[in-house]
């Protein structure tokens, strides 16, 4: 079907996707969480430097540590997915390449996140 209109005129006036504010707020709220949770992660890793397996496992099995670790994973994954989405939207120009990159971003983020969640829970429940 031939269309004499330019790509711009076809979308002009249709408005935004109405998801910009949600994206912005998610990015900022997870950022605030990440400041505290990243300090927790760094402090944990520093404290565990040079420790043996049993010590590391016992530390990571502490219920409070498990909860904070889960919070870090979820907050971190949401933040990094939102951030990479912006990078892709800025630099990947082809429609199909952009679409695939955005899906890949979601897949990667959730797979890494779920792997971490699984590991943290397994350690926590002592299985």
């Amino acid at each position: 079907m031939s269309d004499m209109r330019t790509p711009y005129s076809r979308v002009h006036g249709l408005g935004s996707a109405r998801s910009g504010s949600g994206h912005f707020i998610l990015q900022r709220v997870t950022a605030v969480e990440n400041v505290f949770l990243a300090i927790f992660l760094i402090a944990s890793v520093v404290a565990l430097t040079g420790s043996d397996y049993e010590t590391v496992r016992a530390y990571l099995a502490n219920p409070l540590v498990v909860i904070l670790m889960l919070a870090l994973i979820i907050s971190g994954i949401l933040h990094m997915r939102a951030g990479m989405q912006v990078i892709i939207e800025d630099y990947v120009t082809g429609e199909s390449a952009k679409f695939l990159s955005l899906i890949g971003n979601t897949f990667f983020s959730f797979l890494v996140g779920l792997a971490c969640v699984f590991a943290a829970l397994k350690i926590g429940f002592g299985a």
Partner: peptide
């Protein structure tokens, strides 16, 4: 932006660390 992208890839180290602790002493070593 570059440091953010580096952290994105770096989550693999965190995942490996947690998974290896969950998997046992051999995986952890």
């Amino acid at each position: 932006r570059i440091s953010g992208a580096a952290l994105y890839i770096g989550t693999l180290i965190l995942a490996w660390w947690l998974l290896s602790v969950a998997a046992g002493p051999n995986a952890y070593s």
